[in-house]
């Protein structure tokens, strides 16, 4: 039994089956990511002033990944066009580049961006304790400029309370930090006062501050910058009792609604990238067997999977500004 229009287009619709199928599938994907992005909108609009972070992600890295995906979109079209012209070796080249781009994207995401979040620590300060940490938050300065308040102190954890999940990580960070102080000759302080690395108090956190908390009134911190600013050597001591929420945590999904939606959307997008790469690898290697028997059929498949790939890129084109820039 033969299904009609598997390879050749139906004249009145102008489509072969798989091309229609992928467009329908992509329509449902639009609704899936539409639902996910509506989650982003709801959470962001519902966030109290100061609770939605800005400028946390590394924009140059995001820009790089955006460029990588756009390049791969171009090469996947070239791969398809080469097949249309029956230039198989050029197809192999372009498809190879596409696969490498996809893998590069995933490597940057999984080996660099995600781990960076997992080692970054932040605490939300209770409303009635905000004044206590004014030197790290600069809220009077921000209020004068009619900007949203700062409610989070973030950076690298150097000392965690006794029994905390993060005690061991903090110890390692503290060692590294002391080492840096030693290298920089700042062991004894620049102005005679060395930063606190650990305390004897079993109930407090010591955080090596992010630039925004280190210099909260610096105008450069009022809006996100393109280049990531280096970690400062300043530290802050935060009492556990002043912290809002039950579990101060690294930047993991449950840290805040922002990271919840960041990891969920980029995670699902990453799964789509992975899926695309695996299919590409199949059509670069064992799947090419079809080309010898029915080159047009094989070309169609590349067109279909290419359409999927363009969609995956398109999702990223929404992810990038929503999470990195806005």
């Amino acid at each position: 039994m033969q299904i009609p229009h598997e390879v050749t287009a139906r004249p009145d619709t102008g489509l072969y089956n798989a091309k229609l199928g992928i467009w329908l599938f992509l329509a449902s994907e639009v609704m899936l990511f539409g639902g996910l992005f509506s989650g982003y909108i709801f959470l962001r609009l519902g966030a109290e002033p100061g609770y939605w972070p800005h400028g946390l992600l590394n924009v140059p890295v995001g820009t790089f990944n955006t460029a990588v995906l756009i390049l791969s979109s171009v090469t996947v079209v070239l791969a398809w066009a080469s097949l249309k012209m029956r230039q198989f070796s050029r197809y192999k080249l372009y498809m190879g580049i596409t696969i490498l781009c996809g893998i590069l994207f995933l490597v940057v995401k999984l080996a660099y961006e995600y781990p960076q979040k997992f080692t970054h620590f932040g605490v939300f300060i209770k409303k009635d304790a905000l004044g206590k940490y004014e030197q790290y938050l600069g809220n009077q300065h921000l209020a004068a400029l009619k900007l949203d308040p700062r409610v989070e102190i973030s950076g690298h954890l150097l000392d965690a309370p006794k029994g905390s999940h993060y005690e061991k990580v903090a110890q390692e960070n503290a060692e590294h930090f002391r080492h840096l102080l030693h290298e920089g000759g700042a062991e004894h302080g620049e102005h005679g006062e060395a930063p606190i690395v650990t305390t004897d108090d079993p109930n407090d956190y010591v955080i090596q501050l992010d630039p925004a908390n280190a210099n909260p009134t610096d105008p450069a911190n009022e809006r996100p910058s393109f280049w990531a600013k280096p970690q400062t050597m300043k530290t802050a001591v935060v009492q556990a009792a002043d912290i809002d929420g039950p579990h101060p945590s690294m930047y993991i999904p449950r840290h805040s609604p922002y990271f919840a939606v960041y990891f969920t959307i980029t995670g699902l997008h990453g799964l789509h990238v992975l899926g695309g790469v695996l299919i590409f690898i199949y059509f670069w290697g064992p799947g090419t067997e079809l080309y010898r028997r029915n080159p047009e059929h094989f070309t169609n498949r590349i067109e279909v999977v290419g359409l999927f790939w363009h969609f995956v890129d398109l999702v990223w084109i929404f992810v990038f500004p929503l999470f990195y820039l806005l």
Binding site: A27, S28, L32, G35
Partner: peptide, 10 residues
């Protein structure tokens, strides 16, 4: 096709 994916997201 169009209504189920938002529930999948949810």
């Amino acid at each position: 096709l169009l209504a189920f994916p938002p529930l999948e997201a949810a």
